[in-house]
Write a protein that binds this DNA or RNA. Structure first.
Lengths: 202, 202
DNA sequence: GTTTTGATGGTATGGTTGTACCACAAAAGT
DNA sequence: ACTTTTGTGGTACAACCATACCATCAAAAC
């Protein structure tokens, strides 16, 4: 064998190129050629490591959702909120607002994948339902904890509110992506809503 | 001249075909040929009435947003809420939840256009900001009216709450589109949130 | 030292796409 | 009656796409 190459590293490198290309020109304009060029390799190499375009797109999506999950977990940890429900919930929701370039790219491509999955059979089977459901249960659990501690407004129903929070942050994130709102406005709006759910007792 | 054809009618017919095709296979797989076939006309005719694909897509989007606006106004009127703020607001927000096939198609295609506009220069200039801003002002005004009448929770800020409501309904609508939620669940979630903003005084 | 074999480049191929071009029929204008 | 003009069909064309195929080269295996 020749250079004895680390396949995992090569694949990651190519997927990175795809994500850059997709963030710039849109997922729809991603081609084998554009990815190869962006990655600085030949088209043949992309074929070699991913065989077909569909597999490449699938792998890219898997890696993308993985990294987005990492970002959420990292942010929750970095918040240092410990077990404070409001802090944890806020950290999770704020990650849905694209601020830096990376999160903007991630959310744009993720949304493009999501919308594509509605009409694309190959993508439809992917995990576009697992992650949100998990997230909703996670938020509901923390809301329930806060409620038991008497920290939430009495009209807050943990399960329903978790759905509202997720939908709100998704909607706000999308509006930031579309340029309808600045990230700062989105964050302020989110905080306003959390303040209503977690009233300060004074 | 020959048959003396109504251009407006022909254009509407072709755009209808485009919307059907886009709802079924996705906006990305819409081609001059697929639209022509769906409309039962020749490709040449599509060219004749729209010249270029870009113009066709632009016109289709304009007509789409127009019809969506009509649906909202029609629903508000049909609600018979008169000037009751909560009724009007609920009617507007519920229109964002895809229930029947037509609204599902409309919202899917609209979302595809919106996401496309992030990376597509030709679409970026279009009115993806005017409509939401107008809607937000509309909701804020009715919230303010309700607030003056003492019908809203005191912690509700009309302007911020309008943003939250719009984001929530957009997020819920998207989740229905993605199959994460049933329309009924989305509606119940929306009503739950409105109940918190408009507490029943008993 | 020879033979595998993994990694790469280049290129051919069959299909699709948007659009330009050519032709023609039929009604309107004169 | 003849000439525009308008609607329509068919088709050609250049570009691009995903993918299959062919060739090569170097390092590991033996």
């Amino acid at each position: 064998m020749p250079k004895l190459v680390d396949h995992e590293e090569r694949r990651a490198h190519i997927v990175d190129a795809l994500l850059r290309s997709a963030a710039r020109d849109g997922l729809h304009s991603v081609t084998m050629r554009s990815v190869a060029t962006e990655a600085g390799v030949s088209v043949r190499l992309v074929q070699y490591y991913f065989d077909t375009k569909e597999k490449l797109l699938l792998d890219a999506m898997t890696r993308l959702t993985g990294r987005m999950g990492e970002r959420v977990r990292h942010r929750v940890r970095a918040t240092g909120a410990g077990t404070d429900p409001r802090g944890i919930i806020e950290a999770v929701l704020l990650e849905a607002v694209p601020t830096d370039d990376e999160s903007r790219a991630f959310h744009l491509i993720h949304t493009e994948y999501a919308v594509l999955s509605v009409t694309d059979r190959a993508l439809a089977d992917q995990a576009f339902l697992a992650a949100p459901n998990e997230m909703e249960a996670f938020l509901a659990a923390h809301l329930a904890t806060a409620r038991r501690a008497g920290d939430t407004d009495p009209t807050v129903d943990p399960h329903r509110e978790a759905a509202v929070l997720l939908a709100t942050s998704a909607g706000l994130g999308l509006s930031v992506l579309l340029g309808q709102r600045t990230p700062e406005e989105a964050i302020a709006t989110l905080r306003y809503h959390l303040d209503r759910a977690f009233p300060t007792t004074d």
